[in-house]
């Protein structure tokens, strides 16, 4: 289980669900700059897609190891945020997309204490958006539908199981807790011969959160703050397989839940890297 190697004939899939509700206009600090949460998430999603493309680079170019879907959920409903047709896009399709390139200027602190101005050119597959309510149930159902088709495809039956990563800053507006738990269960029941789909939930911290309040990949619910919503996300999330823990740390193999509560924007990219750690299972 969770041991299938990812190849071009047996890809794995990543589905990212991005909260684009009105609360995402709240301002936070990301990489030393203040911006809307939606801008930070868009930037980080673009970094994550770039990272997945980087992981596919071999001697002969970019290899198509992953099927990627990115959907936004807001008052405008659920929509794919990628520039390609269809729900899923391959890595090479994304790399070939003619998307704008944004130049970010970052002031870095060198280990010796000096400052250094750096520029990073980043492709903009995802653009920021924020409006209306938080139809998280509809988003989960979108992911379920997409992955049900993906898992049933003959070419994917032996593949490494797909991963869903839900990034949200607040509670759903279209469902109660029970409905969300059922939707999460339906996603987690989808499977390939190598195992069940994995569901990560990442809750974005508000501006004022103390980093000490961040709980990442807890082993038990007791590690979470006494907040109903935190428990909900915890119970919606998958328990990471042992192989996953081994990919993350050779020393600590205790089972972890795929949830991060009060995740600061600066930590979100790391969480997405963890959420897509299965991408190291390429042949």
């Amino acid at each position: 289980m969770y041991s299938a190697r990812i190849t071009r004939d047996r890809r794995t899939a990543f589905v990212f669900l991005c909260d684009q509700s009105g609360s995402m206009t709240e301002r936070i600090v990301f990489q030393g700059s203040e911006m809307h949460k939606s801008e930070a998430v868009a930037t980080i999603m673009n970094m994550a897609i770039e990272e997945l493309a980087n992981r596919c680079r071999r001697e002969d170019g970019i290899r198509d190891y992953f099927d990627i879907a990115v959907a936004g959920y807001s008052g405008d409903g659920i929509r794919s945020l990628l520039c390609t047709d269809g729900t899923f896009a391959s890595i090479t399709e994304l790399v070939r997309c003619n998307v704008p390139v944004k130049r970010r200027h970052i002031l870095r602190i060198l280990p010796g204490g000096n400052q250094l101005s750096a520029t990073v050119d980043q492709r903009q597959w995802i653009t920021p958006a924020a409006s209306g309510n938080t139809p998280m149930l509809a988003a989960l159902e979108y992911a379920e539908h997409a992955l049900r088709q993906w898992c049933s495809a003959r070419s994917n039956r032996l593949s490494y199981p797909p991963t869903v990563i839900n990034i949200t800053d607040g509670e759903a507006s279209d469902a109660d807790d029970e409905q969300l738990l059922h939707a999460a269960s339906r996603i987690k029941s989808l499977s390939t011969y190598d195992g069940n789909a994995l569901l990560f939930n990442i809750h974005l911290a508000p501006y004022t959160t103390d980093r000490a309040d961040t709980v990442s990949l807890p082993c038990s619910e007791d590690e979470l703050p006494n907040v109903k919503y935190a428990s909900l996300l915890y119970n919606m999330s998958s328990v990471l397989p042992t192989q996953y823990s081994r990919m993350l740390s050779a020393a600590d193999l205790s089972p972890k839940h795929a949830v991060c509560y009060n995740c600061p924007a600066d930590e979100l990219f790391n969480m997405l890297a963890i959420g897509t750690a299965s991408s190291s299972m390429t042949l």
Partner: peptide, 14 residues
């Protein structure tokens, strides 16, 4: 728990 990404290495080598 922190993963080091290819992107991070690229930025340092750049």
């Amino acid at each position: 728990m922190t993963i080091t990404t290819v992107t991070q290495y690229i930025e340092s080598l750049s």
